[in-house]
Amino acid sequence: MIPILTHLPFAAVFDEIPLGWFLTLSLVMFTLGAVGVVVRRNPVVVFMCIELMLNAVNLTFLAFAAYPTQMVALSNPGEAAITGQMVVIFVMAIAAAEVAVGLGIIMAIFRLRNEADVDDMNTMRG
């Protein structure tokens, strides 16, 4: 056993909590977010549900980064662990840009119609 992250407050986490717990948490969040996207009608809330999904994905990445499989751990643990964290950082940056644009669109449509409801978006039918 290689010495584990003694500088961290939750040093013993990796021995005591299995990977599945983290994954379950993220899966539940992801599913809830997806359900929210479908059932909610306010575009801002729908967007928040999407953010929830993205965060669930981030959690998955970090959990996998911290718990590499046996094979990965044997072959190139450092590389694999850092990859997951990099993805999370990029996802955060991308989400920020997405938020800027998304809220801009919601504002634009609100200014045009003074209301915002995904179900009422029915100008186009076919």
Partner: peptide, 11 residues
């Protein structure tokens, strides 16, 4: 319709 399409596309 343009704004609607943007919002739908975005979400």
């Amino acid at each position: 319709r343009s704004e609607e399409s943007a919002l739908k596309y975005f979400l």
